[in-house]
Design a protein around this nucleic acid. Structure first.
Lengths: 337, 337
DNA sequence: TTAATTTCATATAACGTTTCATGAAATTTT
DNA sequence: AAAATTTCATGAAACGTTATATGAAATTAA
């Protein structure tokens, strides 16, 4: 007599189908089995509504079907978007996601990695700015947005091309004098690539540019001061601004408004990230879009692939430009006024 | 001889400490054991850096130490904040979180619940607007923000009090004519409580009010039309607006700006949620703050408590008002101009 | 037709826990 | 001091899988 409330096991399926336990296991795992057997097992599975007990499976196979995602937080739109798409990519492959918000705390990061080193996850996808993390060779690790070390695969957007694209767009849209703005808060070197790409793009188009990087103090008031100091007779000396992130772009747009500069008529603004903010179209700007779904897919793909290539790949995914109302282009959908 | 790359097991600890397997299990699970034994086991655990294999544990005990979180998405700030705080509350108790983005898809929701019904999670915390979900009695379920049915515990903010608080605040700040704005997109009945509380507050203060609920069409242009129609000689007939969410508030503020109404001088705006948007202080408004960390704690607490009370609790947590620049109050920190 | 080979379902032994019956040692009772 | 009782570490069984050795049936070779 079977207990009331317990899920059916392979043994139950085997009894129901009149086959051996091992045969059920094979069917469940897609290992070829005589047609007559397979059909009977499949029927029994359907009839009993059998689902595999992944904990028994994990115990036996040392595979947990769980992947840890190390991410600073789940609230900034870019991170939230990564969480969302990685979650989808994992569920698609029947993997669970263990979410680990690290708050940039290297102690926590190391703790989670240690946990993974034990037997709790099959691998880690990590966005961390802490290069000193101790990661055992045996734990598959994929880095997002920052190359951790030579032997760890890394998936990033093509930040250099993104910077270049921003410069070219601004040039195409008639700018004659542009600026790159960035805060120094991020320790990743990817923003530097955005900057380098932007410089490169400006140079190749003969577009005069200025760089402003605020690393200390309150970036918002510092940027306001910076912008105010570039106003002569009510006019800003730039007519195009590239901000290192959309978050900064929003802030700059607000500052520009305060300084009576019209966006995009007086000055055009391009951000970076392109993560839609809680589906509210009021909070978009023209931007360089990071291909978050593709980044997510690629991370999961690399992490779960059977045989890691000897040379760990550095994947650099293409970015695109998207109009968002803060440049002179026409909206793709419909002009809203 | 032990395999190189495998984690130490209880057996290893037992051998190292010279005690029986069961004794190690007791120590690990905090079951009292003779002091001398406990010390030796603890030492061995430290020496071998033993960590329990939660898959073996889950197999044996039918406890998975995993909780599923059903949530529409991870990107809207309120949801993102819930994810974050529930994640923390669970990790604190050594529970894993299985994140399930449902996109309001009842099929997906049901699928995840079925998965939980099998043996994959110990319980579910769910924010869903689908009252028809089939949930077995045996699966602990905590609803957020919407009472699913009488026998399922539910944790919400005190939406009624929040509406009331908004009305009182606006009255205190000198408003003489106010409006409640809401989109009809949400199927939850909690927004109705916000509305009811607001009405109640207005009535008790003798504050004339108007309600506008947009359920069809593009809410943004509809609201713009609505607001424009209430302008006489350049002045809006309201001097206070309560929006059902911060997201709507941002949108309304932008519309007001377009209509040349100054916030907060001409019209004050209060939103609802109080989730800080990606830590960017440019995107805050005066608001009724939902106590997300407390909601998260409460959900986890209720879900994991040993003996569920016979009468499932309906927990209603207190909200607070927070200044955010869109009302006439002074900023708590420092006035920024 | 018989022997050698291949095919493939079966049964069994782990995997690392928890739990529980067992009985030795320590304590209390007489 | 002996008997009865309590305390508590022990070790084996079980949880639901996977993997591997086993041998029966089917196929091929002689």
């Amino acid at each position: 007599m079977k207990k009331e409330n317990s899920a059916p096991t392979m043994k139950d399926v085997a009894r129901e189908a009149g086959v051996a336990l091992g045969t059920v296991s094979k069917v469940v795992n897609g290992i070829p089995v005589g047609d007559a057997y397979r059909v009977r097992v499949e029927e029994a599975i359907r009839k009993l509504n059998y689902q595999i007990n992944s904990y028994a499976q994990g115990l036996k196979s040392n595979k947990t079907h769980t992947v840890a995602l190390l991410i600073p937080n789940t609230q900034e739109p870019f991170y939230a978007s990564l969480v969302y798409h990685i979650n989808i990519a994992l569920l698609k492959r029947k993997y669970r996601m263990l979410l680990c918000s690290t708050d940039y705390d290297s102690g926590l990061e190391q703790e989670y990695i240690a946990m993974a080193q034990q037997n709790k996850v099959d691998g880690i996808i990590g966005l961390t700015y802490n290069p000193g993390l101790v990661i055992e060779e045996s734990t598959p690790f994929i880095a997002i947005d920052r190359s951790m070390r030579p032997n760890i695969p890394c998936v990033t957007s093509d930040n250099f091309a993104g910077g270049q694209l921003a410069a070219e767009k601004l040039a195409d849209l008639g700018c004659r004098n542009v600026a790159f703005l960035r805060t120094g808060s991020s320790l990743s070197n990817e923003p530097n690539k955005r900057k380098a790409g932007f410089e490169n793009g400006c140079l190749s188009r003969g577009l005069p540019y200025e760089m402003k990087i605020i690393s200390d103090g309150d970036p918002y008031s510092e940027f306001e001061e910076f912008l105010a100091s570039h106003i002569r007779e009510g006019r800003l000396s730039f007519d195009g601004i590239f901000c290192v992130t959309d978050g900064l772009a929003y802030s700059i747009i607000k500052t520009l408004r305060k300084l009576n500069q019209k966006v995009p008529d007086d000055v055009q603004v391009i951000g970076f990230d392109g993560t839609r903010h809680f589906g509210n179209k009021d909070y978009t700007c023209s931007t360089i879009v990071q291909p978050v779904p593709e980044i997510a897919e690629m991370c999961v793909e690399l992490l779960l692939q059977e045989n890691m290539p000897s040379k760990p790949p550095l994947v650099c995914l293409p970015v695109t430009y998207a109009y968002g109302g803060t440049t002179l282009e026409a909206a793709p959908e419909k002009e809203e006024r």
